[in-house]
Structure formats: C-alpha cells, structure tokens
C-alpha cells in the first residue's frame, strides 16, 4: 500500500505529512511531528492519555486514522501552552497538584479545556462524565477534580473581569 499525503491544521498552522495508510493520528503526532505531549498509554482507546482536540472537541488520537483529520483542526497541549506562563487549566492543575507522574495530565487538561468551553460551571457529575475516559493510576482523581473546579472558578472570574472591562 502506498503512502499518502494528508493535510490538516495543527495548532493553527497548516501541516502536510506523508503517512503510511492506517497510521494513527497519535503516531503521526508523536513520531513525525514531535508532539510528544500526546501520550501513548494503551493504543486501545482505553486510557485517554492520547487525547487531542479535533475542531475543538476531545478525541482519542490512537483510534483515529490520520486520513480522517484531513482538512480539520487539530490541537495539542504544545499548541496551547504559552511561551511564558501557563493556561488557566494548567495553572489550576499545578496549584492543585492534579498529577503525580504526569502521564495522564495532557489528556486530562485537554478534556478539561473542552468541557469548560462548553460548560463553564460544571458540576462534579459533569466533570466525572467528561473525564470518564481518562485513567489516572496515581492521584485517586480527587486533586484532578479540584483542579477542574479551580480552573472553572478562575475562568469565570476572568470572564467577570473581562465583561466588567467591556462595560466600562
């Protein structure tokens, strides 16, 4: 089977990759594009560590043939992390110690970002539902939930500041 060229948008920039057929987005991101924040916990769709955002929605990149993202918008943690400083979600995970070994963290953070964009004030049940596909073996999840709640609070505080700024 011949290799094919696939074009998509990664972190706002167009990329074209020559891939072998059935290559997963996960493997292409990790090995060809250097986005190693996309983790490799199972390649079976069972852990969520390979989560990326596809047109803003979390997907498991290990189950996704890269051809399926042709023409679409892919975002990883590399694309979101500011050169200096952290995103609101990253800051919340750091402050809440929402990680131990850190292997689940990129996936957890991307799902959290997508959740908060859709639902800025999630309940615990909303959080559990959104993160139900993301496994963490270290933390017992409690500090991850705390991080999501802190990110939500920080986000709404920022929104208040922004809207107050707008009305002035």
């Amino acid at each position: 089977m011949a290799s094919v060229v696939v074009a998509f948008e990664l972190g706002g920039r167009p990329v074209e990759v020559l891939v072998s057929p059935l290559a997963t987005l996960q493997q292409v991101l990790r090995t060809q594009l250097g986005h190693t924040s996309v983790k490799d916990g199972c390649r079976q769709g069972g852990c969520g560590s390979c989560t990326v955002l596809l047109d803003g929605e979390p997907v498991l990149s290990c189950l996704l043939p890269v051809e399926d993202v042709a023409g679409r918008r892919v975002t990883t943690l590399e694309d979101l992390t500011p050169v200096d400083g952290l995103t609101t979600v990253q800051r919340a995970f750091l402050d809440a110690n929402g990680f131990q070994c850190g292997y689940c963290t990129p996936g957890m953070e991307l799902v959290t970002k997508a959740l908060l964009e859709r639902n800025p004030a999630p309940t615990r049940a909303d959080i559990a539902e959104a993160l139900s596909g993301n496994v963490c073996r270290c933390t017992g999840y409690v500090p991850i939930i705390a991080a999501v709640e802190a990110a939500a609070a920080a986000g709404s505080a920022a929104a208040v500041v922004a809207s107050e700024g707008a009305t002035r």
């Binding site: 190693t36 952290l86 990253q90 750091l94 110690n97 929402g98 990680f99 850190g102 963290t105």
Partner: peptide, 16 residues
C-alpha cells in the same frame, strides 16, 4: 512548595 517538575508535567514537556 510547588513541585520542581510541576510546570513540565502540566505543559506536557516532560519527556518520558
């Protein structure tokens, strides 16, 4: 105190 490896973990820059 904040973990010395914390920023690397939350930014996905930690290399495993």
């Amino acid at each position: 105190l904040e973990r010395t490896d914390g920023v690397a973990h939350v930014t996905g820059r930690t290399l495993y």
